[in-house]
Nucleic acid binder design. Structure first.
Length: 652
RNA sequence: GCCGACGUAGCUCAGGGGUAGAGCGCUUCCUUGGUAAGGAAGAGGUCAUGGGUUCAAAUCCCAUCGUUGGCUCCA
């Protein structure tokens, strides 16, 4: 065996020979010492391994560092173990659930028994973790027989781990030990605790054991760690920034929207400025949809219960919805509209349709009501009454792909115009193992799924595919944008549906004079206006682009003497559909500027003696300051130019 | 829906078993000022709501409502 070699293929394609049994750490060492120091784990033949694990056959090896997502999650997973070690040292006898990495950081579910773990304990744990990290204890893997593993945790009294063990097969069980802490874990882990340099516990929350609300609630401790102190500082700064941008805070400060407990939970009240913003967005999309061949429709806020029985929504969501409302005499039942599609299906059915009418694209800014669980409500992102920028495209089967592609174009145009340059997409298919969750036959689903695959391929957009995330009536393509703080938000959605047309018995007459069934595409580029505006607020930190800003300008007269001239300028601007006003308060100019800056008004036009005489305004841009004097015509051009620049060119 | 935290003036928040505080905002007056806070005076709160404990509750306890961090859910 000694002297045998293995061929290692590295990501750059180069192949090197090493002694059989080499570890990826040593492979890194052969490249450079610095790299070896930074290697957290390695991907060997597609599987993430400990960097110390011996490689015994020819393999492709990718060394994972902090820069790789998998490197990060390994780092955080190991940090969860470190936190558990600290907790066990501080509070002996506690029991552990699971401790995985998450998007940013990690958590561990802990049963503290009688003890109340509160924020005062956090510092103690952080200190202990730091102390243990400094010991640079290695994470040591050992394969354990199931019997021995059960004995270990039984002796320790950790029921949760015993329960986890029940599902594991003998021969696949491994332990990891660092310092005095041993955990059931399949790994992998980073080499030693010393790499963890910066530690912060971020949150305490309750979480049910195995997500089951009938079972015991454990204390979930969230934390985040970094290999450098500086990165923790950056992360904390980012959190601060996120807090400043929170749409609930800015919505209040900028008077965009409000909630009232007298009106009801999750029912937003749109204030004048928020409404202005909303209407600007709506008009923007209406214009784009007009060019893309959509027809606008309006349907009522309630609909007969049977409509939703037909669509399947009632069966699926009826129990969790607002209860039906009834007519006084006949006791007919109506539902608050939870979806617009059934109404649009009925519009399709008002007369016999010819293939020549297709695709028929019906668009509605339709307000819908859903009884979201109270614990789910969150600012504008999750509410009980919201408006979808909804549309349903009824088309022939052979038009599905083309229509789907057109919708993709529209969605991308919207994103681009609103400054969301960075986005990802996800295709959601049904779970074939769990067909009772969905309606419709296999053939319809296969066709719909195929249409999405082909359309996205032909559009050249990169997608990830997730099984089991489809809507109950069809598969979908979702768009996720990254905002200015690199946070992911799910926005628009496009769904292909062969099922509702069947349920509503939609038909058109084809060129062959036979009846055919149309296909429906559901789509909403914003998703919900409420949610979209929340994201937009956080993305822009309330500094909306000029074309969207509810107040686009404010005129600031130096003193009362220039009130008339200020009003004259104001009138000229409002005639050109700009929104703003003149600040005639009895305040000094410095004060007026400060207030306008705080209110994030894009442009301030200062008028005094100089300006009145020369028929100009002095422009001050939000966040930037004085940018010079313009006469009124130049001013209008200046404003229009800026608006033109920010909208994406295609559909303008 | 479940678990935890929180709820004091329009906003942000301090206080805390013995009749309520600050800053900002608001109103009035003075001031007519040139690129991020001019000055003075004043108004404004059943301390979320309902019960309980107590000589006495905004403060302690319970319930309800709401907000919030998570869990579960999301047509």
């Amino acid at each position: 065996m000694s002297g045998e070699k293995v061929k290692i293929t590295l990501p750059d394609g180069s192949v090197k020979e090493f002694k059989k049994g080499i570890s990826s750490h040593d492979i890194a060492l052969s490249i450079s010492e610095g790299l070896a120091r930074n290697v957290l784990a390695a991907k060997v033949n597609g599987e993430v391994w400990d960097s110390s694990r011996a490689i015994n056959e020819d393999s492709t090896v990718q060394l994972l560092t902090w820069r790789d997502d998998e490197g990060k999650s390994t780092f955080w997973h190991s940090s969860a173990h470190l936190m558990a070690e600290a907790l066990e040292a501080l509070y002996p006898g506690i029991k552990f659930g699971i401790g995985p990495p998450v998007d940013t950081g990690f958590y561990y579910d802990v049963d503290f028994g009688e003890k109340d773990f509160d924020s005062a304990d956090i510092q103690k744990v952080e200190q202990k973790m730091t102390e243990l990290a400094r010991q640079k204890n290695e994470y040591v893997r050992s394969e354990v027989a199931k019997r021995a593993a059960i004995d270990y945790f039984r002796k320790k009294g950790d029921d949760y781990k015993l329960e986890l063990l029940e599902d594991l097969e003998d021969g696949t069980i491994s332990f990891y030990k660092q310092g005095n802490f041993t955990d059931l874990c399949k790994g992998p882990h980073i080499p030693n605790t010393g790499i963890i340099k910066a530690i912060k516990l971020t949150n305490i929350a309750g979480a049910y054991w195995r997500g089951d609300e009938t079972r015991k609630q454990l204390t979930r401790l969230y934390g985040v760690t970094f290999p450098k102190k500086k990165e923790l500082d950056e992360y904390l700064t980012l959190l601060e920034e996120a807090k400043k941008r929170d749409h609930r805070k800015l919505g209040k400060e900028l008077e965009l929207f409000a909630f009232s407990e007298k009106v009801g939970q999750g029912l937003p009240l749109w204030l004048p400025k928020g409404t202005e913003l909303r209407e600007k967005l709506v008009n923007f999309l209406k214009k784009a949809q007009l060019k893309a061949g959509y027809d606008s429709v309006v349907t009522p806020h309630i609909g007969h219960k049977n409509l939703y029985v037909t669509s399947g929504h009632y069966e699926k969501y009826g129990e969790d919805s607002f209860k039906p409302i009834q007519t006084p005499n006949e006791n007919e039942e109506f539902l608050l509209k939870p979806m617009n599609c059934p109404h649009h299906c009925e519009i399709f059915k008002i007369k016999p349709r010819s293939y020549k009418e297709l695709p028929l694209r019906l668009a509605e800014f339709g307000t819908v009501y859903r009884y979201e669980q109270s614990g789910e409500l969150h600012g504008l992102t999750r509410v009980r009454g919201f408006t979808q920028d909804d549309a349903h495209i009824f088309c022939r089967p052979d038009q599905v792909k083309e229509e789907f592609k057109k919708v993709i174009d529209l969605v991308l145009y919207v994103f681009k115009s609103l400054g969301f340059e960075d986005f990802t997409t996800q295709i959601s298919f049904r779970d074939p193992e769990n067909k009772q969750k969905y309606i419709g036959d296999d053939d319809a689903w296969n066709k719909a799924e195929q249409a999405i695959i082909e359309a996205t391929e032909e559009k050249g957009i990169n997608t990830i595919t997730v099984i089991g995330e489809a809507a109950f009536y069809g598969p979908k393509l979702d768009f996720m944008v990254k905002d200015a703080l690199k946070r992911n938000w799910q926005l628009g959605t496009i769904q292909v549906d062969y099922n509702l047309p069947k349920r509503f018995e939609l038909e058109y007459v084809g060129a062959d004079n036979q009846k055919h069934r149309p296909v429906m595409i559901h789509r909403a580029p914003f998703g919900s206006l409420e949610r979209f505006i929340a994201i937009l607020i956080e993305h822009t930190a309330g500094r909306f682009p000029l074309w969207l800003s509810p107040l686009q300008y404010i005129i600031l007269p130096i003193s009362e003497k220039y009130e008339d001239y200020a009003n004259e300028v104001n009138q000229k601007l409002s005639l050109k559909d700009f929104t703003g006003y003149a600040d005639h308060r009895d305040e000094k100019i410095g004060r007026k500027i400060r207030d306008a800056e705080i209110n994030k008004i894009p442009y301030m036009f200062i008028v005094g003696e100089k300006e009145e005489e020369s028929r100009t305004v002095s422009i001050r841009k939000h966040g930037e300051g004085d940018i010079g004097s313009y006469n009124l015509e130049e001013l209008l051009n200046f404003m229009n130019n800026e608006i033109d620049k920010s909208l994406a060119p295609d559909l303008k």
